[in-house]
């Protein structure tokens, strides 16, 4: 309970708390669409590919946000171009582009800053969240939440049945790139909290756990956001009390939630099904 006491008293901890919760929420929300559209790899790719942008921003001493968004968007377009304009399949295109960007990013970062910076960017350090980081995260959070709320209908139908969406006149390619753009924003917002390498765990794992628990997309988005926020706070707690890097703790928290859902989901859980089939056998006997 000392944690809560400190949370009340230390501004740096409050900043870290607000930022983590927001990151958890938006990762869960965008992650739901990433999971349902089968774009998990793409999420991983974009999160890695923001690294050179972060490095270049450091070099130019501008906010890392600008560079990261730029290289994130560039990645989405490069992957789209390679998979559409050649016979290369999209998972290979993703592999080619993101490893290149990530490699470039590591070289630039080691040139631009010290090795400790690299570790922070790669694995997150939620306790070092500055005012500007918090504000960027809140602004991005507002953009993401408002966009998802306003265009929920369009996101739903284009994720579920792209053909129908296109047949009635939605621009499905634009929607695809809009989601890529939001994904880039979310990744940038997550840099301080989870770090580049493990953003994917925040995007994919809470959404996947939520997916196992419901047959309604709106419920899935809300649940995923809740799981994301919960994991982020758990991450903050451990990194504050035990001085652990926040990213890996958050990743393991999301995994624990997923495992619980996987085992005990009322409809699809492994354990639940075992009990159900035993119940049936008993009834038959």
């Amino acid at each position: 309970m000392e944690f809560f006491h400190d949370l009340m008293n230390y501004a740096f901890l409050q900043k870290a708390f607000i930022t983590s919760v927001m990151v958890g929420i938006i990762c869960g929300a965008i992650g739901s669409f990433i999971v349902l559209r089968g774009m998990a790899l793409m999420g991983d790719a974009i999160s890695h590919a923001v690294l050179p942008g972060v490095a270049i921003s450091y070099m130019l001493s501008i906010n890392y946000f600008y560079g990261a968004v730029l290289t994130g968007v560039l990645t989405a377009f490069s992957i789209g171009a390679i998979s559409q304009k050649s016979r290369i399949k999209s998972d290979s295109a993703i592999g080619i582009v993101f490893s290149a960007f990530f490699a470039l990013g590591i070289i630039l970062i080691t040139k631009a800053r010290s090795a400790t910076d690299l570790t922070q960017i790669l694995f997150g350090n939620v306790l070092s969240v500055r005012d500007s980081d918090m504000w960027i995260t809140l602004v991005i959070g507002a953009i993401v939440i408002v966009t998802v709320a306003l265009f929920f209908k369009e996101l739903l139908i284009s994720s579920f049945d792209e053909t129908m969406a296109a047949a009635y006149g939605l621009n499905t390619r634009f929607i695809h790139y809009a989601i890529m753009f939001l994904l880039t924003l979310v990744t940038v917002a997550s840099l301080q909290t989870v770090g580049v390498i493990l953003v994917v765990s925040m995007l994919i794992t809470p959404a996947s756990a939520a997916y196992l628990l419901t047959n309604r997309l709106s419920t899935m988005v809300v649940l995923a956001s809740f799981f994301g926020a919960l994991s982020a706070v758990i991450g903050l707690y451990f990194s504050f009390l035990y001085n652990m890097p926040s990213g890996p703790v958050i990743a393991l928290a999301t995994t624990s939630i997923f495992v619980l859902a996987f085992l005990f989901s009322p409809q699809q859980g492994l354990v639940t099904q075992m009990f159900k089939s035993r119940g049936k056998q008993d009834a038959a006997a």
Partner: peptide
């Protein structure tokens, strides 16, 4: 070419 595991029930599909 839809994902038959999508989190959507019959009545919501028709509502689309």
């Amino acid at each position: 070419n839809i994902d038959w595991n999508f989190p959507i029930v019959v009545k919501d599909t028709v509502l689309l």
